[in-house]
Design a protein around this nucleic acid. Structure first.
Length: 539
RNA sequence: GGAGCGUUCGACUAAGGGUUAGGUCACCUCCCUUUCACGGAGGUAAUACGGGUUCGAAUCCCGUACGCUCUACCA
């Protein structure tokens, strides 16, 4: 294909033809793909939520479409300050920038439902006029009483005649109540027995019998829409072509389908895709924040502290996950590309993503595997990039970094043994400061005078080397020197390695012993040897 | 209770009528490294159950079981 400037390809018939926009869009081939993520800003963004964003984003970008963020804040009683900003921050951290949002703007705003309030009532009125909805005057108390009285009370065609609404009351009474501004809601009028069928992009054909669904509230007493009305009206007004949401929404799909049918026509309706749930590692339920607290892993993308309850919850970001790893592991929960590949960058995901490879069944979250993904991404990550991310942890641990290039070098040496960013501290602190905790217990059993002499000698030689300007620089040189000295004294080098390691790092961990000596100064090494020797003498 | 959705190793998944049911994480063994990790070589381990259809079923059909989601003037 010849190159077509991006701003020109709209006008190029060949490009339009080749453009992948039209996949899954059989009924309206010219439409631009538009998807939305529509969270309610009530708290931290949970794994499942971020994955919904991801699939939206991947799909949109795959087809050169637009990804919209719409804030569903119709429930004023659940408003939580900061939650919207948190969502924005999370998307930014993950690298999934919306094309349109409350802060990015766009041609279909406003993007907060609370600011769209005046737009909904007319649609509710239209439904009433068409006979697809009705006024209901029952108070919350009356409904509660009803629910107590009848165990599985449903407001539906069987019960609505016994309730206070414009279907059961005489017209004059209804007008009176309306004129007196009696608080009321608008409920959908579920038809008697109609089969509602739609094609779910993931599950195929899904059928519902309207006689089984109840008369959901569409417009609340405060004239705010419920989700059921808002999702339809806004998806229509914002020209959404594909609607992705969690599987928990499937049972209310018939309500939305019916509203679509009666308001805008089914041919205007976006394609639905109900994503499988992310399940808790043990048991089978939907993963909740509680499970993370209980099992010791994050569930939210980033730290969240609730301004009302003051409760704070750890996030993947602050636990030390790389955004690339987080996105990668989320993508693999319910999707794969059909090959054995598991490591994908965001651009690769965009390229490879396909809805027909999304699973139907829920996926249990496995924190161990999540950490493996992170380790893989740490291993691939650029050392300077990691240095940046890790610096705050060093500050928190009160370890001073004098020379950034030294940090970068150290990171290259230790990164393959770190699963999470904070692991860099124990894995590399000894490159900066002498260990304070020495695992002498691991030395003592095989300790002997000969070894003491050896190390005493080694320390002296290191001091000499330092004073002469550090002639021994490379780890190979240091190793050769060490082994020669050991052999000279009739000792097996191998028997000295573990004690030496412990003297330098404090325990049985860390990179190659001579890589460490080569990076700290020989004077420093000498000091550590002496310090440990003193400790051992005391035992 | 009702409706809807789902069900392959412990976990994530591949295989869409014919494979010794494959890979990855975790676990175990060994090699490398006299640490840990990385890397390498092996190992344990699965088609929920019962009927069909078929020469042949994880795969198609029907039941059953189990699980989950929903069943608010919450999303």
């Amino acid at each position: 294909m010849k190159y077509i400037p991006k701003d020109k390809w709209f006008f190029c018939p060949i490009a339009t033809y080749l453009c992948k926009n039209k996949v899954h869009m059989e009924n309206s081939a010219e439409q631009m793909v538009r998807v939305r993520f529509a969270p309610s800003p009530t708290g931290g963004l949970h794994l499942g939520g971020v994955r919904t964003v991801l699939f939206n984003y991947l799909f949109a970008k795959k087809y050169n479409g637009q990804f919209i963020l719409r804030i569903e804040d119709t429930d004023q009683s659940r408003f939580v300050p900061g939650a919207e900003q948190y969502i924005l921050d999370t998307l930014a951290w993950c690298g999934m920038t919306p094309d349109e949002s409350p802060i990015h703007g766009g041609a279909y705003g406003p993007y907060r439902q609370s600011e769209r309030k005046p737009m909904y009532k007319q649609y509710a009125t239209q439904l009433i006029e068409q006979g697809n909805a009705y006024y209901a005057f029952d108070t919350a108390e009356e409904l509660d009483a009803k629910r107590k009285e009848i165990p599985n009370f449903q407001y539906n065609r069987a019960t609505r005649t016994g309730m206070k609404n414009s279907l059961s009351l005489p017209a004059a009474e209804v007008s009176r109540l309306l004129n007196e501004n009696t608080p009321h809601v608008v409920r959908i009028n579920m038809p008697d027995s109609e089969e509602l069928v739609f094609e779910d992009l993931i599950r195929g054909e899904v059928k519902f019998d309207t006689s089984m669904v109840d008369d959901k509230v569409l417009l609340k007493a405060d004239e705010m829409p419920t989700y059921h009305l808002a999702v339809v009206v806004d998806d229509y007004l914002m020209k959404i072509t594909h609607a992705f949401r969690g599987e928990e929404w499937l049972p209310s799909a018939p309500v939305h389908i019916l509203v679509w049918k009666n308001l805008f026509g089914l041919d205007q309706m976006p394609k639905w895709a109900h994503l499988p749930l992310i399940l808790k590692p043990d048991g089978n339920g939907k993963l909740s924040k509680r499970d993370g607290d209980r099992l010791g892993f994050p569930v939210f993308a980033m730290d969240w502290s609730d301004p009302n309850t003051k409760e704070s919850t750890i996030g993947f970001k602050e636990r030390g996950f790389l955004p690339a790893a987080f996105v990668n592991l989320l993508a693999m929960l319910g999707w794969n590309d059909g090959t054995d590949q598991e490591l994908f960058s965001l651009p690769t995901l965009i390229e490879k993503f396909s809805l027909d490879r999304v699973h139907k069944g829920g996926a249990k979250f496995d924190y161990e595997k999540a950490k493996w993904f992170n380790q893989e991404w740490i291993k691939q990550a650029d050392d300077a990039y990691l240095a940046n991310l890790v610096t705050p942890y060093f500050k928190a641990a009160k370890i001073e970094i004098h020379e950034p290039s030294y940090l970068i070098k150290v990171i290259g040496l230790v990164k393959e043994r770190c699963q999470l960013l904070p692991d860099f501290i124990p894995q590399s602190s000894f490159f900066f400061t002498a260990p304070t905790e020495i695992d002498t217990a691991s030395i003592l059993p095989k300790w002997e005078e000969k070894k003491h002499c050896f190390f005493d000698e080694l320390a002296k030689l290191y001091l000499v080397d330092y004073e002469q300007g550090q002639k021994m620089k490379s780890s190979t040189e240091l190793e050769a020197h060490f082994k020669a000295l050991a052999t000279e004294q009739g000792l097996k080098p191998g028997d000295l390695m573990l004690p030496f390691r412990i003297m330098l790092v404090g325990g049985k961990f860390g990179p190659g012993v001579f890589d460490i000596v080569a990076n700290i100064e020989t004077q420093d090494a000498a000091k550590r040897i002496q310090y440990c020797l003193d400790l051992l003498s005391k035992n």
